[in-house]
Simulated scan of single mutants.
Amino acid sequence: MPEVPNPRASRRHDLAALIAHRESDNGRHTRGARRKRETRDRLLDAAFGLVAKKGMDGVTINEITEAADVGFGSFYNHFESKEGIFAALVDWLFEEFANALDRLAGDLSDPAEVVAVCVRHTLMRAYREPVWGQLLISEGFSTRALNRGLGQRLLRDSERGISERRFVVADPLMCLISVIGTILAAIAAELHFAASSKRTVTARKMLRSSEERFAERTAAIVLQAFGLKRVEAERIARRPLPTGSEVKSG
């Protein structure tokens, strides 16, 4: 006797086939998205390496694609122009660094110590990576820098300090602007002194020993701008940095 088809079993089979097909499509889509993301990161990494050697004005799209081992035409699948990749590069570097600072200071309860730790790490990274420091100086007051990455974290931490009455400021906006200006000016001075002190190994070692002290002094000035007394600001700025490590570039 012929087997009678089971409509319910047939529907289950069709549904299983549909789900398998969709999962296969999703897998292909995920792999494609991952490859696209990896290509974009290679282009950004190549651009940063070239900028470190030649500066932004001296880098061409062709050099970027060759360094990234990506076809010239593929560049435009990710960026509209050279200016576009440099804008994305700034976001990529500073957003990643800001995320690293968040992880490092995540267990700190005092907003003043959070700000001090972030300022000190920012100064020390600018010293270790002068190109990164120059990028921060050039972009420090741009809309991009203020609305994302380090600027957004500083705004968040200052607002937290004010709301908890840890910071006392008459004009929060002007205070934030002055704090950003202080940090950028300190980085500019640090890079100038570093460049002028690279003539001998001895001078470099001496500057290295003073690098952390300079970062501490800058952090203390920032905390005073937020209303802390000088003695307390200096004490907080000299606290040991959270263990776990040095904040590095991505």
Rank of each mutant, 00 (worst) to 15 (best):
Met1Asp: 10
Met1Lys: 07
Met1Phe: 14
Pro2Phe: 07
Val4Thr: 15
Val4Met: 12
Val4Ile: 15
Ala9Gly: 08
Ala9Asp: 12
His13Pro: 00
Asp14Trp: 14
Leu15Gly: 10
Leu15Ile: 15
Ala16Pro: 00
Ala17Ser: 11
Ile19Tyr: 13
Ala20Glu: 15
Ala20Pro: 06
Glu23Phe: 13
Glu23Trp: 12
Thr30Gln: 14
Arg31Lys: 12
Arg31Leu: 14
Arg37Gln: 08
Thr39Phe: 06
Asp45Lys: 12
Asp45Gly: 13
Ala46Trp: 10
Phe48His: 10
Val59Ser: 01
Thr60Pro: 03
Ile61Cys: 06
Ile61Asp: 04
Asn62Phe: 11
Thr65Glu: 03
Thr65Phe: 07
Glu66Ile: 09
Ala67Cys: 06
Gly71Gln: 10
Gly73His: 11
Ser74Trp: 03
Tyr76Lys: 07
Tyr76Gln: 07
Ser81Lys: 01
Ser81Pro: 00
Lys82Ser: 04
Lys82Arg: 14
Lys82Glu: 02
Ile85Lys: 01
Ala87Thr: 13
Asp91Gln: 10
Asp91Arg: 13
Leu93Asp: 01
Glu96Phe: 00
Arg103Asp: 12
Ala105Ser: 14
Gly106Cys: 11
Asp107Tyr: 07
Asp107Met: 10
Leu108Arg: 02
Pro111Phe: 05
Val114Thr: 02
Val115Ala: 12
Ala116Phe: 02
Val117Cys: 02
Arg120Ile: 04
His121Gln: 15
Thr122Lys: 02
Leu123Asn: 04
Met124Gly: 09
Glu129Gly: 00
Trp132Ile: 06
Gly133Val: 01
Gly133Lys: 05
Ser138Asp: 10
Ser138Lys: 07
Glu139Ile: 00
Phe141Met: 12
Phe141Asn: 13
Thr143Ser: 15
Arg148His: 13
Gly149Phe: 10
Gly151Ala: 05
Arg153Ala: 04
Leu154Phe: 11
Leu155Pro: 01
Arg156Thr: 14
Asp157Arg: 09
Ser158Tyr: 01
Ser158Asn: 04
Arg160Ile: 15
Glu164Trp: 08
Ala170Gly: 13
Pro172Met: 05
Met174Leu: 12
Met174Pro: 00
Ile177Cys: 09
Ile177Leu: 12
Gly181Arg: 13
Thr182Ile: 08
Thr182His: 08
Leu184Ala: 09
Ala185Met: 13
Ala188Ile: 02
Glu190Phe: 09
Ser197Cys: 07
Lys198Phe: 01
Val201Pro: 00
Thr202Val: 08
Arg204Ser: 09
Arg204Cys: 03
Lys205Asn: 10
Leu207Cys: 04
Arg208Thr: 13
Ser209Pro: 00
Ser210Ala: 15
Ser210Tyr: 15
Ala215Phe: 07
Ala215Ile: 05
Arg217Lys: 15
Thr218Ser: 01
Ala220Gly: 08
Leu223Glu: 05
Leu223Trp: 02
Leu223Cys: 08
Gln224Thr: 07
Phe226Gln: 09
Phe226Arg: 03
Leu228Glu: 09
Ala237Cys: 02
Ala237His: 02
Ala237Met: 03
Ala237Glu: 04
Arg238Cys: 03
Arg238Thr: 06
Arg238Gln: 08
Arg239Ala: 12
Gly244Gln: 02
Gly244Glu: 01
Gly244Ser: 06
Ser245Val: 07
Ser245Gly: 14
Glu246Ile: 13
Lys248Gln: 11
